[in-house]
Design a protein around this nucleic acid. Structure first.
Lengths: 182, 182
DNA sequence: GCACGCATGTAATTTGTTACATGATTCA
DNA sequence: TGAATCATGTAACAAATTACATGCGTGC
């Protein structure tokens, strides 16, 4: 992969808003960032250790809860590092859709198979869209309670806009493949 | 990465339509597949060697051209392997947009920086869209000359649909960040 | 004569996933 | 009591990028 690691910035970004455990970081990534970023425990915990070593975050044992857990905080150096990265232009926006790959080579497999790939894709989108719409509603309701909400909302709206475009394309594509009915 | 390698299928897919050299494969990926897939020489050549070892492709020296070059062909086993993969549902459609990441954490950097990220994104899209529109025109003109064209067109239309949605979002996003003017 | 595009490949390095390993707490 | 969720981490492995290394052909 070697495109320059961004997980450290992602984690610092999350920590810039609130202190979190590794487990909570994973949850944030799997919910709020889900539509445009991903990461596994196998990369989160080592990166967290790294950030502490580099002085960009601190780790402390939680005393309040009964469970053994470690709470991470961003340091001033961490904030500087994050700000620096945020200032730089985005290097890479990448889309990797296996569905499109299978469609591109669709002639080898025939129309029926192509249609079934499109329908599977469509179902996935239709299932996820309601969550995005829910997020939008929620964020719009509490837009003033926290300054970060506006930025979250921006990314949610991106998801909604593109998902609607996907659905429009699905219909068009099925029509092109001879599925006019229904 | 470990998500199960797909480059072998991508290459077989390209070879299913015509015989190609490694160099040409790279070019196809950088043009036709550009909007939803990518690969470098460092992965293409080793994979090509692999495919030959596994009997899914053959390699022969080109005698016609003056340059030293190797032409690859798909075998019957290769076609079977490709068909098998095409039949299976897509496992992963992934989007990784650094722009959205920077926007999500935008509160740390402020509105002006957020706007400049959006504008950079918008410019990139506006620059690429004409190529997609050109491809669309071309493919629609010659849709009947080759059965594969219909499938290529499908993916091009996907790109156009999503890029237009992106542009719509850019406007909306800038408005949300207080850039009403212009 | 020289720059650009054609053409092939390898090695080091990066980054990340998956699977494994472990164990506590909460709730039904 | 047993399942689900909370919680942390490591090790083996996979996949791909970047940088390096090399050299021919063509057109200006």
């Amino acid at each position: 992969m070697a495109t320059e690691k961004k997980l450290d910035c992602v984690i610092l970004g999350l920590l810039s808003h609130e202190e979190l455990t590794g487990y909570e970081i994973k949850k944030r990534i799997d919910t709020a960032l889900k539509y445009f970023w991903g990461a596994s425990y196998g990369s989160i915990y080592p990166t967290l250790g790294d950030l502490v070593t580099r002085g960009l975050a601190t780790k402390r044992i939680d005393t309040k809860s009964k469970r053994k857990k470690f709470i991470y905080n961003i340091t001033d150096d961490g904030r500087t590092y994050l700000a620096e990265w945020l200032r730089l232009p985005a290097e890479k926006d990448e889309l990797r859709y296996e569905t499109l790959l299978k469609l591109f080579f669709g002639n080898e497999a025939g129309e029926l198979q192509a249609i079934s790939h499109i329908e599977a894709f469509q179902e996935k989108i239709e299932k996820e869209l309601p969550y995005l719409l829910g997020s939008q509603q929620n964020l719009e309701k509490h837009i003033d309670s926290d300054k970060t909400h506006k930025y979250y909302l921006l990314t949610v709206k991106f998801g909604i806009q593109t998902y609607n475009a996907y659905l429009k394309w699905c219909k068009e594509a099925k029509k092109m493949l001879g599925k006019d009915y229904e």
